[in-house]
């Protein structure tokens, strides 16, 4: 069965899915996503929730043709691990880009986009995706 959407389940994750809130360890200083109660790197319990950097680079990606039920109309989906400018890594789909244009090292920025509509119940799920960062035009 596909991931079953529910209002409470979507609501609980809203900070991380809509504002890219992750964890920051007060001991080792590393940032991570999704947030966890204890630092996944050094084990410190002194962790706070922070908004992570919204830009980063594509560290690796997968152009995916076999997706789960409920996503087949979106295939191929390009999934990526993005290394944010503050060091945290995020797994998310890429958007607004042709799959063949994607390359590692590509600069991207986080946006909130629709992920899936639950056909049975009409719930719409939103989440983080990354789109290519266009270089700022001079004189603007």
């Amino acid at each position: 069965m596909a991931y079953r959407l529910s209002p409470a389940r979507l609501w609980r994750e809203k900070d991380s899915r809509y504002r890219l809130v992750g964890g920051m360890c007060r001991r080792c200083g590393r940032r991570f996503y999704p947030p966890r109660p204890v630092c996944p790197y050094c084990g410190s319990k002194s962790v706070e929730r922070v908004e992570l950097a919204r830009q980063g680079v594509v560290e690796t990606f997968a152009i995916t043709y076999t997706v789960q039920e409920g996503f087949r109309d979106q295939a191929p989906i390009v999934y990526a691990i993005v290394k944010l400018d503050d060091g945290a890594r995020v797994f998310a789909p890429l958007t607004d880009v042709e799959p063949e244009k994607v390359h590692t090292g590509m600069r991207v920025e986080a946006v909130v986009r629709r992920v899936r509509v639950d056909d049975d119940h009409g719930l719409i799920a939103y989440g983080i995706k990354f789109r290519p960062l266009r270089p700022a035009k001079s004189g603007q």
């Binding site: 991931y3 995916t64 997706v67 989906i77 797994f91 789909p93 992920v115 799920a125």
Partner: peptide
């Protein structure tokens, strides 16, 4: 949540 397959 994002529809990722295990292969992806």
């Amino acid at each position: 949540f994002y529809g990722a397959s295990f292969a992806a």
